[in-house]
Design a binder for these strands. Structure first.
Length: 476
DNA sequence: GAAACATGTCATAAT
DNA sequence: CGATTATGACATGTT
């Protein structure tokens, strides 16, 4: 990079920063011998303001250190994952930790530096373009004027270089946490639907017809189930209430039929909207744990308005949604077949207890088939309810996540803009400081270096050289 | 009457 | 292997 340098002696600025890796070397082209000595061959003009120079140099060194941050990542915004895990330091935190004693010049426009950095910061024109982080960006080109023109408000901010460095260090750290993918995904707004199926299809034979069919229609396809032993275990009829599996969070096991149950002993759950529906059986008050035998469907039918009028009443009183009225299809079927135990038990009892319950009664094949179908449908109904509830909750959760991701994206965008602004300020400041340092340089004969003839270049180790422009061009 | 919605049911796969 | 559960698809009723 500094091929044009044939002489490099560290300056002896009384600057602590100089003791570090950054050293400023007087440099000359191959053909030009500008040898600078540490003792004074190349030192600030003693007639100038030394303290100002020192401070300027301090800031310059700080910025040259900053360049090391930029080197590894040529595309700090386009490729680096960018996850801020904590709020970015506000702008105001960039206050001068090393206040300049200099009369703060208009940071860019007053600087003579542009001649030494011509073209250096053209990439800043578009903050989303490649921000050339290489050291070369500071050398041999002029960017100060462009900078000041591009960023008219940049000079209004005088960030502390050190704090800014800290800040950028933090930001740099935050860049590596893999959020780029999130941002990429955020480009898509995740507008997918719920997946709920509301489609229709050609009508199929409705099983509802079976409800009004004669019991013989329930002949089991397997020719009928086996005989169950007729040993009534009355005491077991209600014992399963406490042992019914309740593994499903959304499950309201007893709501399916309890709200409009044949059996008022079943507690009506408040979640059942059908509670408000007139229930012809609601007047029955049977202690849930008392009866030797649960009221049978036949009993219900006997206690109801009775017979066909009873069925007519409930078939027309299904004011609720769907088939969740006072009497469901299966309830009517069970009623028609005189199933001697409640549907709640049919559905909710564990299989062993269910079989035991069946064993207590002598049921024909039609009844057995219906009971098993009722059990299957009842369980599936609960499963469907749970499934739908889960689906809705997933939708809610995903929407919530989407909102959080959008908020995060906005936050990242703000931080990115802030970072770019800070970077721009830094570059502007760097340009200014370079110009200030450059203006102080004198050769061995005490002559100032012409900004038109020399530029500053820095090596990877932080050393800064004066490089003749023609040599710099040749180096490229 | 159409659309949206809710619920039950079936078929099927998974557990 | 049967019972249970999960879920998509469909049917049906309600708003």
């Amino acid at each position: 990079m500094c091929s044009a340098v044939n002489t490099s002696l560290p300056f002896s600025f009384s600057c602590e920063g100089l003791a570090n890796s950054s050293r400023l070397h007087g440099g000359a082209s191959m053909s030009t011998t500008h040898r600078f000595t540490a003792s004074g061959g190349f030192r600030p003009n003693p007639t100038s303001q030394p303290s100002e120079m020192d401070l300027a140099w301090q800031e310059l060194m700080a910025i040259t250190e900053l360049q090391e941050f930029e080197v590894p990542n040529e595309h700090p915004f386009s490729t680096a994952p960018y996850i801020p895990m904590e709020p970015m330091v506000p702008y105001g935190n960039f206050g001068m930790s090393h206040p300049l004693t200099e009369p703060t010049p208009p940071a860019c426009e007053a600087s003579p530096a542009p001649a030494a950095f011509e073209g250096g910061y053209s990439e800043v024109m578009n903050p989303y373009q490649r921000l050339n982080p290489n050291v070369e960006m500071h050398h041999g080109h002029s960017g100060g004027q462009a900078m000041s023109g591009l960023l008219p408000n940049a000079h209004c901010l005088q960030p502390s270089l050190m704090s800014l460095l800290d800040h950028m260090g933090m930001t740099s750290t935050n860049q590596g946490l893999g959020k780029e993918t999130v941002a990429g995904h955020l480009a898509d707004d995740m507008e997918s639907d719920s997946g709920l199926s509301l489609g229709s299809s050609p009508p199929l034979a409705s099983p509802e017809n079976a409800a009004h069919a004669v019991p013989t229609q329930y002949l089991p396809p397997d020719g009928g189930l086996n005989n169950y032993a007729e040993g009534p275990c009355i005491g077991d009829h209600y014992r399963m209430r406490a042992s019914i599996p309740n593994s499903m969070d959304y499950q309201h096991n007893f709501s399916s039929y309890s709200g409009h149950s044949y059996f008022p002993g079943v507690p009506n759950l408040p979640t059942t909207p059908q509670l408000q529906i007139p229930n012809p059986q609601s007047q029955q008050q049977i202690p849930p744990m008392k009866p030797l035998l649960p009221p049978t469907l036949s009993d219900i039918q006997m206690n109801s308005a009775g017979g066909s009028s009873f069925q007519n009443s409930f078939t027309k009183s299904r004011a609720g949604s769907g088939s969740s009225g006072p009497y469901s299809r299966d309830e009517r079927r069970a009623l028609a077949l005189k199933i001697p135990f409640p549907l709640e038990k049919i559905v909710n009892l564990p299989v062993d207890d269910f079989n035991e319950l069946l064993s207590q009664y002598t049921l024909n094949d039609t009844q057995l088939t219906l009971v098993r179908d009722i059990r299957r449908r009842g369980k599936n109904k609960v499963a469907a309810q749970n499934c739908r509830k889960r689906k809705l909750e997933n939708i809610v959760h995903l929407e919530s996540e989407l909102g959080q991701l959008r908020a995060q994206r906005e936050h990242l965008a703000r931080e990115r803009l802030e970072f770019q602004q800070n970077l721009t300020i830094l570059k502007c400041r760097l340009s200014d400081l370079y110009a200030k340092v450059f203006s102080q340089l004198r050769d061995e004969e005490g002559h100032p270096y012409s900004l038109e003839d020399y530029s500053l270049q820095q090596t990877n180790d932080g050393s800064v050289y004066l490089v003749p422009r023609n040599a710099a061009l040749e180096g490229e």
